[in-house]
Amino acid sequence: MKTYAGKVRALAGISFTVETGTIFGLLGPNGAGKSTTVKILTTLSRPDSGSAEVAGIDVLQQPDQVRRLIGYVSQKPQFDPEATARENLHLQGRLYGVPHRELRSRSQALLDHFGLGKVASRQARGYSGGMQRKLDVALGLIHRPKVLFLDEPTTGLDPEARASMWSEISRLAADEDVTILLTTHYLDEADQLASQLAIIDHGRLVAQGSPNDLKSELRGDAIQVELTQAGVDDHVRTTLVRLGGVREIVVEGTTVRARVDHGASAVPGVLAALESAGVAVTSVTISRPSLDDVYLRYAGRPFGDDSHHQAQASATTEMEVPGE
């Protein structure tokens, strides 16, 4: 548990396990406890009570050992803008005690991997936003960490740079044999990259599973029917209830929302029932449940601009964050 001055309890017992070589996403609104979780697991902060482990090593007892095992890419840019990409990587490697010869080849490999080879001898301040972010990620990898913490790696990037960063990240887990814990502002990012994710709210873990599992827990697709006229709420509801298999029916003006097990096969029946009841329809939309729906259900409010995601990964065993 971590209590900041003013006695705000940030975390109240979170525990999760991440399979080696996979990407784990951690989602939750601002203040949910994601950043605190990452800070504790990366040895930046100490919890007031409880324990935390990364790759089987106690974060509180042996922070130095944990530091050698993890890489960290913070939300804020962490490269030195006055130095070149190569100088940045060399300094980082020397701080980790990477032997001279290995450091040179490792730096070159990372520069090539992230497409920074051509600008490696120029000051990083002149790089594009996407290149600077890649340099940040490369800095986190110089010492071949077992676990990499990526704190909102694509926030502030343009769509093209974001797409490019996504492909780098998904390749990383495989190529570098590294377990990645990802936090992000974007639900689609977590959906695309993470094989497992957890939703944190008010310092508690409220849901955990693969994006698909979490979505299928919502049981079924959303259908939305537009009517030609409003004011037939009860009539529509009774008709659909009688049809069976249609749940969570909401009628608002001319819009009807409901959930069905299988959207495509349910729609003909729904349309036929409405028609025979004398209700005219203008359009029908079917949508698979999205992470937004998952989020809405577990966090109890829509996923807004102020929300974040985070993901965490642990190499072998369990990463446990402060219990009470």
Binding site: L44, R67, S74, P77, Q78, P81
Partner: peptide, 14 residues
């Protein structure tokens, strides 16, 4: 401190 440089150093074995 304003950039992430300080946190990067603190997370490393420096």
């Amino acid at each position: 401190m304003e950039r992430g440089v300080m946190n990067r150093l603190l997370v490393s074995p420096t």
